[in-house]
Design a protein around this nucleic acid. Structure first.
Length: 451
RNA sequence: GUGGCUGUAGCUCAGUUGGUUAGAGUACCAGAUUGUGGAUCUGGGUGUCGGGGGUUCGAGUCCCCUCAGCCACCCCA
């Protein structure tokens, strides 16, 4: 026998395997997002992972360019892996709006790649769950976007979170008045760090890096000192944008979004005006969102987005205004893991049937398929090992119910339905359609859900 | 991309100033039990000490490089 050369199994930095324990909550989150998006009428789309490089790098940020995974394909074409879902959406919209019509409401749940340094909740391959409404400037879309973010977080199981709301036009108006329009990007980038590094450090960065005067920096920072109540904050902003049309328009829209969200059922306190959020991406032009978990603000925004005037300017002369947001699935999962919200289960099926009596395989299979027909997942163990071992397996995987039947049960025409969480068991008549057994299972599963 | 910290069994970790054959708990596997698991008992170490090179009589331990993880910067989900 010759020695076989083995390759060390490993994954690239920032790329991960997802074992069942990780994949089950992941899939659950994806299906929650899908359900919420669909409930507002957003339709699914998908686009290729690989695009022509000029399409991806067209937007042109230097930072973006550095993070792009790019290479030449077999035909010598320069291609790249998408690093977000917005640029592919722009290309998609430019190609297909005329067939699909406006407004185009789509969601897109897919993997993206960024070759940047890794950190907790930050990977090189991760999944985004985007939804966007394209082709309208109506405030109704801004409000709806707010409601979707809110419903999404609620549906996932959070109640303690804050959606921070801002409008780029207010910032622009203020900067115009201060004569800082030229330096807007750098100033806003500094302002965006307010929550993290504090007012003093922000002021310093504004004067040193962004080239603002101390007086200008102080003026910008007054945004941070706004009262915490939304009504009061709105009133306080008024004098700051007085006489500036852009700023006033932005302020008006903020008010409309706040009122609309309240009408749509967003509880007071979950949506907060915060003029210090600026978002890194510079294609946002109006409403901006960032969502933080109050229990874990350090992990950053888990759902961000905003309004843009002209999504596809790079690809078409047709003007396509829109608004949307993106749920950071992997970041959110990292947060949920840390908050103990991830149930340790490695089976997606709730019911377990031990392969108990060697001669009864067909009976087990029949029973399993009857239960499946009733819409409940069942696993039949595949080796007739000792019952204790099989139950141990079921326990480790997180099964909720076991259907145990051996010679005694078959003789008596019953099946033992066992609650694996409490150990309680009961004998239930074994019928051809397993109706009584299904009823017993459903009852158990319901009780567990409400507990 | 820059800087700092870390890396020993699947997991959590111990391992003395460099010294012989690298340990514990837990998990896992096999069995005292051919009918009942989530804390019974018994047996089993499952390890390229992240990888490579160097110093040394001798390296898990010291030095260099590299890979990976965490933290900060940057940027962002």
């Amino acid at each position: 026998m010759s020695e076989q050369k083995r390759i060390t199994p490993r994954t690239l930095k920032g790329f991960r395997d997802y074992p069942p324990e990780a994949m089950i909550p992941r899939e659950r989150l994806i299906s929650t997002a899908r359900r919420v998006y669909r409930s507002y009428g957003f339709s699914p789309i998908d686009t290729p992972a690989l695009e022509y490089l000029d399409i991806l790098s067209g937007k042109g940020g230097e930072e973006t360019d550095k993070q792009l995974y790019k290479f030449q394909d077999h035909g010598g074409r320069w291609v790249g892996l998408r690093f977000d879902l917005t640029v592919p959406l722009a290309r998609f919209a430019a190609e297909h709006v005329n067939e699909l019509g406006i407004p185009l409401k789509r969601y897109h749940i897919a993997t993206v790649w960024r070759g940047e340094n890794t950190q907790r909740g930050r990977y090189r391959e991760f999944m985004q769950c985007d939804f966007d409404t394209i082709g309208t400037r109506s405030v109704a879309a801004d409000i709806e976007t707010t409601l979707v973010i809110h419903d999404l977080l609620r549906a996932i199981g959070f109640s303690d979170f804050t959606i921070r709301l801002n409008n780029r036009m207010v910032l622009s108006g203020l900067l115009e008045r201060l004569g800082l329009s030229e330096r807007a990007t750098a100033v806003l980038r500094a302002l965006d760090k307010l929550g993290k590094i504090g007012a003093k450090a922000v002021a310093e960065e504004m004067t040193s890096t962004a080239g603002a005067s101390a007086e200008q920096a102080a003026q910008v920072l007054r945004l941070a000192e706004l009262p915490s109540g939304n009504e009061e904050a709105l009133r306080a902003v008024e004098p700051l944008v007085a006489g500036n049309e852009t700023g006033q328009l932005g302020l008006h829209r903020l008010k409309e979004v706040l009122d609309g969200a309240t009408a749509g059922g967003v509880v007071d306190g979950r949506l907060r005006l915060d003029l210090s959020i600026a978002r890194g991406l510079d294609y946002y032009t109006g409403t901006i969102f960032e969502t933080f978990l109050n229990a874990l603000p350090a992990i950053g925004s888990v759902c961000s987005g905003g309004r843009y005037d002209n999504l596809a300017a790079l690809f078409t002369s047709q003007e396509l205004p829109g608004i949307g947001a993106s749920l950071g699935l992997d970041r959110l999962l990292a947060a949920m893991e840390e908050l103990g919200m991830i149930e340790k289960v490695s089976t997606p099926a709730p019911v377990f049937i031990p392969y108990f009596d060697k001669s009864r395989l067909h009976d087990y299979l029949r029973l399993a398929s009857a239960v499946r027909r009733a819409g409940v997942g069942v696993e039949v163990f595949c080796d007739p090992k000792r019952l204790g071992d099989q139950l141990k397996y079921a326990d480790r995987r997180g099964f909720r119910v076991a259907l145990i039947a051996g010679g005694n049960e078959f003789q008596a025409g019953v099946c033992q339905v066992k609650n694996l969480q409490t150990g309680e068991k009961q004998d239930v008549p074994l019928e051809p359609d397993a109706a009584s057994i299904v009823a017993a299972i459903k009852k158990l599963l319901e009780i567990d859900l409400t507990a």
